[in-house]
Design a protein around this nucleic acid. Structure first.
Lengths: 219, 219
DNA sequence: TAAAAAATTTAAGTAAACTTAAAAAAACAA
DNA sequence: TTGTTTTTTTAAGTTTACTTAAATTTTTTA
């Protein structure tokens, strides 16, 4: 399994999580920085190997076999993120960049070692769930995006869905870290801004941020 | 820099350490499991990039530029070995196998993190020196192979030069570990056997072993 | 709903990293 | 030193993962 194939499968998996199964070669091409033609080519080749279902002009869908491979790569990615974050205290941006490379050269054997070392964590430092070695995500995600949070309620940060360095730098500077507690002070419906309070500091976030910060309500 | 190129350069570097600059494409081909034709091809291509000197039918020699690349990869390999050995308590065989993959996907940034975490070690768990980030090996190696050790003298194990699982398993079972102390009881010149004592156990080693176990005399 | 725009597919071509087979050169051995 | 063996090189071909350009299909919109 080449890096190109692994990244292609992973891209389809991730895209289908967001775009409700309307993944065309073009969107994968854009994401991977290759031409549409190359993406179509690859899709056909992977269909031959029974890793995805391909019909001309139709959305791409991973087979069970393809999905298992996607989840195995994502598992390795997130285990590396958790490990690098804990061990070397690297930033969320840095761990993502390194994991993007390491994930393709990590044996199942080593992945298990990392997982065991960390106590088989269920989430990475972004709050994303880590599939188990069978490719299962057991934890049900009940988090909501901050834009949908309710005024005067208290939440914990569940996920930071981004890989943008500037975003992570901002988060790090303002204690916006996986697991931390925040209070939603006010939702400004006109401007789509959200005012939150964290560690006695008040922060006003615009929708670019509230869409990618996910939180869990504290009961 | 592709994995194929990195492995080619590394193979030349390692071969030139042993065979005193008589590395022909054939020996690299054998080592990498590719055809002689492919090795000749690659040699020409790397010569174009000024990574090695190539003249038809002449030995291959890395340029300063090529050597720097070789040492950078070897640095990453040995840092990974040291790190995996310490962190996950993996066997010498396992750490080698994993490092062989990870070395190609490790940024200089991450290599520095690993090195700093370990306290900038000068040797890996096999006893092989770890080049610094400038590709320099500062430590002078004064170790000798066990076949040349002198009777009744005491040594510490300096290097275990192998990547064979059975050898490592044998070593692990008999406390033959980097840094451990041994006493050379007798050299059998006829049979080329060496009798050593370690932890009050006597072991008789044949030349297959004594040639790849390196030791430092204790003053 | 028909024309325009956008996306997808096909076709042809490239570069990297290999392969096998044949030719040429070097190494060795009688 | 000459013939044989081995090694290296050249030549031609393959696969993977791309590219650009043109043709086709789908989607949008006027």
């Amino acid at each position: 399994m080449s890096v190109a194939v692994e990244n292609f499968i992973k891209a389809i998996y991730k895209n289908n999580l967001n775009s409700i199964n309307n993944t065309k070669p073009g969107s994968i091409a854009k994401h991977l920085g290759i031409s549409n033609a190359a993406a179509t080519d690859m899709a056909k080749k992977l269909a031959d190997k029974d890793l995805l279902n391909y019909e001309k002009y139709k959305p791409l869908q991973l087979t069970a076999k393809g999905e298992k491979i996607a989840l195995n790569i994502i598992r390795k990615h997130r285990l590396w993120e958790a490990f690098l974050f804990k061990t070397f205290d690297m930033s969320l941006h840095d761990i993502h960049r390194e994991a993007e490379l390491l994930e393709h050269e990590t044996s199942n054997f080593l992945a298990e070692k990392i997982s065991a070392y960390l106590g088989h964590p269920k989430f990475d430092p972004h709050g994303d769930p880590i599939p188990n070695s069978d490719g299962e995500i057991t934890t049900t995600d009940i988090s909501i995006s901050l834009e949908k949070a309710i005024e005067n309620k208290t939440y914990t940060i569940a996920r930071l869905m981004s890989d943008d360095k500037d975003f992570f730098d901002f988060c790090a500077q303002n204690s916006l870290k996986y697991g931390n507690t925040i209070e939603v002070v006010k939702q400004f419906s006109n401007t789509k801004m959200t005012q939150i309070k964290i560690n006695n500091n008040t922060i006003l976030l615009n929708q670019d941020f509230t869409k990618i910060i996910y939180v869990n309500e504290i009961n």
